[in-house]
């Protein structure tokens, strides 16, 4: 009986394994990031996201591509580090005979970068049995609510303190995400958390007076970016006159920058895994 039982159990396990590996997990999960030339920062953000995804999907191979040619060139020149562009990664997948693919961008919003990489990926659609694309960080309303919870947990604030998150900003219509997130923070009971952007709306000129009106004891500045790279190091926390840190201080506010990319947060890493699971379960 015990022999029969273990045989039965074995068959069941094989069936389960096949079920999850073949029918669900793709052969490859391609994680696409903008990229960063800050090696140490990459280790705690992009590397960490990729590693967490690999742990969550042990039956899939996790591969990497960057969208920024400038960063790819710089890493190749400086560090002899070869990183695929999206097209190179797709060509390699085709050459390796990969048939089932999930692509997960680590981008924050559904902007130009996302549109471009999606077009590059889908150009190879006829050479795969299945390509599925995970959504960027801020896509569904649930995503926004989860990000709000994550940010509140990572940056516990006193009532008389304020937090300003620096987003990238874009001319793409998806730029509305930043103002929406700002609205949702306030609607969710956090009048002291603000979103501003470097290259879009809301601009610093709008955020600064709003923060001043609260007269906070301390303002924390942090990136609403996956990687604390150039923007965080220079535009946010730099010592130059035009950094947000200096501008907030010159406006008479006690200001402290925090250089943590959102990719460092376990909750954010988990959210990408949820996005991957969501597309895998789609038909």
């Amino acid at each position: 009986m015990s022999k029969f039982f273990s045989l039965f159990l074995g068959v069941l396990m094989i069936a389960l394994a096949f079920g999850s590996a073949a029918a669900e997990a793709p052969e490859v999960i391609l994680v696409i990031s903008f990229g960063t030339s800050y090696n140490d920062t990459r280790a705690v953000t992009i590397d960490a996201i990729e590693n967490t995804i690999q742990e969550a999907f042990p039956d899939s191979e996790v591969r990497r591509a960057f969208t920024s040619q400038i960063i790819i060139d710089k890493l190749a020149d400086r560090d002899n580090l070869v990183i695929d562009t999206v097209t190179q990664a797709m060509e390699r997948l085709v050459a390796d005979g990969v048939k089932t693919l999930v692509v997960q961008p680590t981008h924050v919003i559904n902007g130009y970068e996302y549109d471009d990489l999606a077009a590059e990926v889908y150009a190879f659609a006829d050479q795969f049995d299945s390509i599925k694309m995970g959504a960027p960080l801020l896509s569904s309303t649930e995503d926004y609510l989860k990000i709000i919870d994550i940010i509140k947990a990572e940056y516990p604030l006193e009532n008389d303190e304020a937090l300003v998150l620096m987003g990238h900003g874009t001319h793409h219509f998806a730029n509305a995400a930043y103002a929406a997130l700002d609205y949702m923070f306030k609607a969710g009971g956090s009048p002291n958390i603000f979103i501003g952007t470097v290259e879009g709306y809301p601009e610093l000129d709008i955020v600064l007076p709003a923060v001043q009106a609260l007269n906070p004891t301390t303002v924390y500045l942090a990136p609403l970016m996956v990687v604390a790279g150039d923007h965080a190091n220079n535009d946010l926390a730099g010592d130059e006159a035009d950094s947000w840190k200096t501008i907030f201080k010159a406006a008479g506010l006690r200001t402290e920058p925090v250089l943590r990319g959102m990719g460092e947060f376990k909750g954010v890493q988990q959210l990408y895994i949820e996005h991957i699971k969501a597309v895998i379960s789609e038909n």
């Binding site: 030339s37 800050y38 090696n39 140490d40 920062t41 705690v44 710089k74 020149d77 400086r78 604390a228 190091n233 926390a237 250089l259």
Partner: peptide
């Protein structure tokens, strides 16, 4: 080439 780390990246 931004070769070396900065105060933050070295610290982490």
């Amino acid at each position: 080439m931004n070769a070396g780390g900065n105060q933050h990246t070295i610290r982490i």
